[in-house]
């Protein structure tokens, strides 16, 4: 490609981004933009899929049949979210199989929060309320991301998320208004999920490796700290309303800012979990690999059946 042609392509790309337009799959795009979108979408897709595990853990033990059907529907939605995102990522020419191979090889990441265990039924409430709540804040912002297929997947996903958060909050509400034991269970779940939920937004803006470039490309629309603050501000009143306390002694309403001040995240823990040393990292990955291997006979049977049909068609 001639130099001036390259410059022209870059200028067209820059102008589209500047004009709040969207970059579509067949458009020319800089290599590192392509890599960044792919990394972000595959990470997001893996998070949806791995995120089914802590919740799936409680399907057989949900307290009522009604709660069980709700939880199944929610987990099923998350599988769908994974599929929307894998297919959006595939528009960049990388196959889902390749993305999953990278996950299994430890080369692709997923949200670190799913490496924490779901110990009690209240955790299912806390996950829906806090983890989906944090995801929604992030995903609403990403509805305006500059890569078209990603933005459209976000619109579709956001439509389904409201149910997730509401069912979770309702579980917490019922427990918080229940017996002393039930209330303690809800508080314990909040204690354990609060900080990991804040970590979901990633490192501080100044320390975030990919942030600056992503913001410039409008791939990321708002900074990690902005989104985290929004989540805190909307969640604290929700906790207060049902009589639960967020485990942060530094939490305080700041009149001047019109926002909550809150304590520092344990970044050492964040780094440990992200680099594979969380409580359930190994379990999550092993389970995903085993699920794939255990389903191999189904894929083999389908391929054999298709082959037979093809042969029969050709013979006819």
């Amino acid at each position: 490609m001639s130099e001036s042609n390259q410059e022209h392509l870059q200028a067209t790309f820059d102008a589209r981004v500047a004009a709040e337009s969207r970059i579509e799959p067949r458009d020319w795009m800089p290599d590192d933009f392509r890599k960044s979108v792919l990394r972000q979408m595959s990470q997001h897709a893996h998070s949806e899929v791995i995120g089914m595990q802590p919740e799936g853990n409680w399907i057989t033990r949900a307290p009522t049949l009604h709660r069980k059907t709700i939880l199944m529907a929610k987990v099923q939605d998350e599988a769908g979210h994974g599929l929307y995102l894998y297919s959006a990522a595939e528009t960049l020419g990388t196959s889902r199989d390749d993305m999953i191979a990278a996950l299994h090889a430890g080369k692709a990441k997923y949200a670190s929060i799913f490496n924490y265990p779901s110990l009690t039924w209240a955790d299912i409430g806390a996950i829906g309320w806090l983890v989906d709540g944090a995801a929604i804040v992030n995903q609403v912002s990403l509805q305006r991301t500059s890569y078209g297929p990603y933005a459209r997947a976000m619109v579709r996903i956001c439509k389904e998320e409201s149910f997730h958060q509401r069912q979770g909050y309702q579980i917490m509400m019922v427990l918080a208004r229940g017996s002393e034991e039930q209330k303690a269970m809800a508080q314990d779940a909040l204690n354990r999920w609060w900080w990991p939920s804040l970590m979901m937004f990633g490192p501080h803006d100044a320390e975030s490796a990919h942030s600056a470039k992503s913001m410039q490309w409008k791939l990321k629309r708002e900074s990690n700290d902005t989104l985290r603050q929004r989540f805190v501000d909307q969640t604290i009143p929700q906790a207060e309303l049902i009589g639960l306390t967020v485990p942060d002694p530094d939490l305080k309403w700041n009149e001047e800012r019109g926002a909550y001040d809150f304590g520092e995240i344990d970044w050492e823990e964040f780094m440990q979990v992200i680099s594979g040393n969380g409580p359930c990292n190994k379990q999550r990955l092993d389970h995903h690999i085993a699920a794939k291997e255990n389903g191999q006979w189904v894929r083999d049977a389908m391929a054999a059946y298709e082959e037979k049909r093809r042969a029969r068609r050709e013979a006819a």
Binding site: T69, I70, A73, S162, F163, R166, Q167, Y169, Q238, L241
Partner: peptide, 19 residues
């Protein structure tokens, strides 16, 4: 049949706006 897939199936206190 599966109305529980819809957000509005979950009644929350009126103080909770936009969830």
């Amino acid at each position: 049949e599966k109305t529980y897939r819809h957000a509005m199936e979950y009644e929350l206190p009126p103080e909770i706006k936009n969830m």
